[in-house]
Every structure is written in C-alpha cells, then in structure tokens.
Simulated scan of single mutants.
Amino acid sequence: MLLSEVLINIGLGLCLGTIGGLFGIGGGLVAIPMLGLLFGLDQHLAQGTALVMVVPNVMLALWRYHQRNRLNWRWAGVLALAGFCWALLGASVATSLSNSLMRYLFVGFLVLLILYNGWRLYRPLALAAQGAQTPGTRQLALLGSVAGLAGGLFGVGGAVVATPVLTSVFGLSQVLAQGLALAMALPSTAVTLVTFAAHGQVDWGMGLALSCGGLLSISWGVRMAHAVPDRLLRLLFCGFLLACSAGLLLQ
C-alpha cells in the first residue's frame, strides 16, 4: 500500500471515528457503504475491513462513555453475552450469502432502522412522556440476541438496534443507551471480525489505517454526543442512517 493511500485511509478513519463516537456505533455503519463507493470493495470485504476499525473504536468509545456516565454492568453483561452468541451465528450466515443479496439485505435493514427511529421522533406525546422502566434480564437477553444477530449479519455491532430500543422502550437517555449498546457490541464485533477474517474477507492494511484514524478522533465524537441535546442527537442519527442507505443504493 502506497503512503498516499495510507494517509487517505487514516483521514477517512478520522471522519468515521468522530461519527462512531457521536452515535455510539463504532463507525462501521457509515464505513461499509463508503468503502464500497470510494474503493470498490464488495459487500463482504467492506464489512470485514470496517470491523478492523470498529473493534478498537468500540473499546475506546465504551471507556469514554463510562467515564461520563457510569454504566450498569449487570445490564451490559446480559446484553453482551446474548449478543455474542447470536453474532457468531449471524456472521456465519453472512459469509455464506452472495454479495448482491447481502447489499440488499443491508439496505433493507437500514430502511427499517430509519422508519423506527423516525417514529420515535414523532410518536404521540403520551408515549414520549412515559417514565423509564427497569429492564428485566429476559428483556435484555432478547434485545441482545436480536441486536447481536443483526450485528453479526451486517458487521455493525448491533448498537444501531439496541440504542433506539433502550431509549424508546425503557426510557433511557440517548447517551446512556449508546454506552450500554457499545458494551453489548464489543464481544459481538470481535467474534464477527474473527469469522470474516477466517473466510479471507478482510483487507488488513486498509482496516488498520482506518483504525488509526478512528482511535485519534472517536473521543471528539463522544464529547460532541454529550454536548448535543437529546432530541437533536436522535434526529442526526436518523439523517445519518438515511445517508448510509442512499450510499449503498448508489453503489
């Protein structure tokens, strides 16, 4: 890999790390369509390469979120264990599917997230005014399972599924939900990366360069997340998902 290519990848990692810290997702969700659009990587290789950046980004972002909002590690442990088991299954399925099918499934997944997050923004006031609920172990295990399966299948860690559910169903704040989602995503992204790597679907040189940029900038995103009003952060998240969907459809 040429030095210019390394610098470009580090610069891209800087942008993705900031986005990952802002939304608590590690940056993989936007990295996947960008790697396809800008570098011509197929869907499997884009997902596997993005995970090289996502895993260390999630680790650092989780630490930063925990510094600012102490996490409930019992809740995080239940989410993480369930997510890990189902991410392993999802990643195994993903590596056996065709690239075109994976791309269409990924776009469909993003569209569902957009619809759900849009509904959360404009749902009736009676629902929005409900108080926080204490999530039970079974509820957390179910959420971790669904999020882990989606994370393993699409290489996004499952945080994009867990975060909106934690805010809308259990009434957690956006930043607290993002921190718990990161704790759940860490083991699931790690096992997904190992699975993709075992099938030769990772560009390690590009992924490591992206990772270097991401680690330098993800703390900025976390600081921004705590400075932005909760509703605005949710609105930005919806816009972010919409942009990712459009990018994949254009690929």
Rank of each mutant, 00 (worst) to 15 (best):
35 L>E: 01
137 T>V: 15
17 G>S: 07
94 A>F: 08
26 G>A: 09
55 V>H: 05
68 R>G: 00
241 L>A: 05
184 M>H: 01
86 W>P: 00
70 R>L: 13
5 E>S: 12
132 A>C: 10
130 Q>Y: 02
173 S>D: 14
33 P>Q: 09
251 Q>Y: 06
175 V>H: 14
195 T>S: 14
217 S>L: 06
105 L>R: 00
5 E>L: 12
66 H>P: 00
53 M>H: 04
132 A>E: 13
189 T>G: 00
179 G>D: 07
74 R>V: 14
233 L>W: 03
24 G>T: 06
29 L>G: 00
28 G>T: 09
178 Q>E: 03
206 M>E: 04
144 G>T: 07
88 L>I: 09
37 L>K: 03
35 L>Q: 02
204 W>H: 11
158 G>W: 06
192 T>P: 13
65 Y>C: 06
59 M>Q: 07
74 R>F: 12
41 L>T: 00
182 L>C: 08
137 T>L: 14
22 L>N: 01
11 G>N: 08
233 L>Q: 04
101 L>E: 02
40 G>T: 11
157 G>H: 05
207 G>V: 09
182 L>Y: 01
45 L>G: 00
88 L>A: 14
28 G>W: 00
243 A>F: 14
142 L>S: 10
65 Y>W: 05
117 N>S: 15
47 Q>M: 15
36 G>M: 15
124 P>W: 04
158 G>S: 13
78 V>H: 05
40 G>E: 08
244 C>G: 02
92 S>M: 13
181 A>M: 07
197 A>N: 11
240 F>M: 13
205 G>Q: 14
131 G>C: 04
219 S>I: 11
2 L>Y: 02
243 A>R: 06
41 L>D: 00
151 G>I: 08
91 A>I: 11
180 L>P: 01
199 H>G: 02
136 G>C: 08
251 Q>E: 08
217 S>F: 07
102 M>N: 02
196 F>R: 01
37 L>M: 11
152 G>V: 14
189 T>E: 05
145 S>D: 09
133 Q>F: 06
122 Y>V: 14
176 L>K: 14
111 V>R: 00
229 P>G: 09
157 G>K: 04
243 A>N: 01
33 P>T: 08
134 T>Q: 12
96 S>F: 05
74 R>H: 13
37 L>N: 02
156 V>T: 13
116 Y>A: 05
179 G>M: 06
57 N>S: 14
95 T>K: 08
69 N>M: 10
65 Y>D: 09
138 R>K: 13
166 L>Q: 03
210 L>E: 08
178 Q>L: 06
42 D>H: 04
188 S>D: 02
201 Q>H: 12
78 V>N: 01
107 V>C: 09
37 L>Q: 05
35 L>R: 08
216 L>T: 07
112 L>P: 01
10 I>W: 00
221 G>A: 12
116 Y>C: 01
218 I>E: 02
122 Y>N: 09
105 L>S: 03
223 R>A: 15
151 G>F: 05
226 H>T: 09
131 G>V: 11
94 A>K: 03
92 S>W: 07
246 A>I: 15
134 T>P: 01
243 A>I: 15
188 S>Q: 13
90 G>T: 08
248 L>F: 04
237 F>S: 03
43 Q>F: 01
14 L>D: 06
201 Q>Y: 09
